[in-house]
Computed example of a mutant assay.
Amino acid sequence: MPDPWMPQALRADVGDHAPCDPEFPARAIAHITADREATAEAPLDLVPFANLKSFFTGSGKGQAPQILWDPFTGAFAQFFPATSRSKAVADAPGGTRTNRAGKVVIQVEALFFPHCRVNGKVFARLVDTPCTGWGDLHAWISSWGVPDVWPMGRPTSLTRNTCPAGKWRTEGGWYAHAHVPENDHVDPGSWPEFVSQPLCEPFPGASFFQAGRRSPVIGRMHSRLVAEDCDRYTSHAGPDMWGAGDVRSYAAWQQKLGFEGRAADGIPGRFSWDRLKVPRG
């Protein structure tokens, strides 16, 4: 199962979790915080990330998304797990349950408003920012089965384009706040392109890792452990054969992920393997 909490995000759980509606397809909803009104002639400084985090854990709990993302620094805060609905869109009683209508409904607020100023430079659109951390965010949301499609089109302007009820019920993927039924917002105005994910080796099962087994999969795993600074090998000869050095090095990787005791025994499990991202041959 994917991680309900994005590994790169500061967990700021506001509680009040509630399930999504699994009869609908997985989706994500893109927002900008739009917390100041600036113009090209009168730009304004970006509001600090800490201010928005405090808002969503305080008086703004009733409007909190899953993720607050700072596209300038790559910082993240997460207020609800992926498995819960969040509260960043209007959801009329008896309506389409906009915050819940999906196996997941992962809502992202990018810390941004048009013509914000950061370090003396003004940014008119979200896609003009560095979009730092977008690859990690996209990968985590994709791990929950949200397809790389915009059923209503990728947002390119601050305009309203409400999704028809039938499309909303049947088509998963990414939606702008401007697309969500029962809402009147026009954000986010733009959003970065999807990031191509490298093909990774699927988890071969714990029984695959037996002393003396040779496989190019083990060799590629060896290289990834070294790249992740988990090299506990005494020799790099025969990197494609499973042995004691692999156990020590993989245990270091498990510990890096936060596992302890018997959970860091050096034998790959699905969660740690998927995080290692061993490339497919």
Rank of each mutant, 00 (worst) to 15 (best):
F76E: 02
T98E: 01
I267W: 11
P93N: 02
H179A: 09
W150V: 10
Y175W: 13
G172V: 02
T83H: 03
F194G: 04
A9F: 01
N161D: 14
A12C: 15
F208Y: 13
G153A: 10
V127C: 02
T170N: 10
Q107D: 12
A211M: 14
G58F: 14
D128E: 15
H177G: 15
F271R: 12
N119G: 12
M241D: 07
A101N: 05
R262H: 12
P164S: 00
R270W: 03
W253M: 03
W134H: 05
G120I: 03
A252Y: 07
G281L: 06
P48W: 04
S235D: 08
S86V: 01
H177Q: 13
R169I: 00
W168H: 05
R232T: 07
V89I: 07
S190D: 15
P65G: 05
R125H: 14
F113I: 06
P114Y: 00
A26F: 11
S207K: 07
G266M: 02
G153F: 08
K277V: 04
D13A: 11
M6F: 00
L126H: 03
F209D: 04
G189K: 04
R248T: 07
R97G: 11
V122G: 04
G120C: 00
P147I: 03
E193P: 07
F208C: 06
P164M: 05
R213Q: 08
G172H: 04
D148S: 13
T98P: 06
P147H: 01
R11I: 15
D187H: 12
T73Y: 04
G189Q: 00
R160W: 12
N99R: 08
V104L: 07
V105F: 03
V247G: 00
V149K: 09
A178T: 10
S59M: 13
N99E: 06
R213D: 06
S143R: 00
R97F: 13
T83A: 05
